[in-house]
Each structure stands twice: as structure tokens, then as C-alpha cells.
Simulated scan of single mutants.
Amino acid sequence: MDKIVVFETYYNPIEASIVKERLIDSGIQCFLSDENTITINPLYNQALGGVRLHMFERDIAAARSILQDEDVQINLDEVGEADADEVAPVEAQSAEICPNCGSAHVGYVHATKRRFGILTILVSLMFLVYPFFARKTHHCFNCEHEF
């Protein structure tokens, strides 16, 4: 039966997850311990000793060679230039047109002018709370007109 050992300890759970996935993609079976605890409460990081990466003892040499391989790095500049047209977000045009300036750069958002009705103001003053209801309106982001 193979022995499971702690290969490495990480104090950053994200880095530990990246290393784990790189090893799994290379065919080495491994798992992390204390990852969820440290992610939820980072103050436990020192108390628990960090996130530990476990693997079979027979795979340690292969894991070291995989993690030291620098040829695996991806040049993001080359990928970004080739796929720029495919990844570019498509701007959604609003169906509303601003009556003031004719712009289509309009959104349905919380009002900036006359946000609260009189009933909302009275109830919030009576209970000493921040107003609980704000009007929504169409807002032109070019001329700041609300309609």
C-alpha cells in the first residue's frame, strides 16, 4: 500500500488550488487539506499551519519536475491578440431613447432626483431608519436627464 505524505504547505489557498490543478492535469493524484477552513477564516491560517497538499510518496519526484518546468508558461499577449475579436463584449443597446438629447445610453436605475416619495420619508422618520424604498426611473448617462 502506498503512503500518502504532505508534499508542500501553502499559506495562500488560491496558490495551493492552482498547484493542485496543475498536478492533476499532469496525471498526479493529490488533494488539499484545511483549504475550506482557511478560506472561510483566514485568521486560522497560522494556527492550522496553512493549506497542505497531499500526494502519494511515489509521485513526489514527478511532481517536483512538473512544478519546476518553466516551458509550460503561457504567453498571454499572444493569446490576447489572436482572440481579441472573439472575446470582445457586445454592447447592449437600450430600447429607450432619451427625450432630452436623443441618446440611447439610457438605463433603468434608482432615481438620483426625487428618489423617495412622501410616504417613504414619513415612515422612515417615524421609525428612525434609512428610507426603505427608492424610486426607479430611466436615466440618461449622457445628459443626466431622468424620465
Rank of each mutant, 00 (worst) to 15 (best):
N36I: 05
I38K: 05
T39I: 14
T39V: 11
T39N: 06
P42W: 00
L43E: 14
L43S: 15
Y44K: 08
L48A: 02
G49S: 06
G49V: 06
G49I: 09
G50V: 05
F56V: 11
E57F: 09
A62Y: 02
I66Q: 00
Q68N: 15
D69I: 05
E70R: 11
E70L: 15
D71P: 07
V72P: 04
I74W: 00
N75M: 02
D77G: 12
D77L: 11
D77H: 11
V79K: 04
G80P: 06
D83Q: 09
A84Q: 13
V87K: 07
A88M: 14
V90P: 04
V90Q: 12
C98Y: 00
P99T: 06
P99Q: 04
N100A: 11
C101T: 08
A104L: 12
H105S: 09
H110L: 15
A111M: 01
T112M: 13
T112V: 15
K113D: 08
K113F: 10
F116W: 01
I118W: 09
I118N: 10
L119Y: 05
L119R: 11
L119P: 02
I121L: 12
L122M: 07
L125C: 12
L125Q: 13
F127G: 04
L128V: 13
V129C: 10
F133M: 12
R135T: 13
H138S: 14
H139N: 10
H139C: 01
H139E: 11
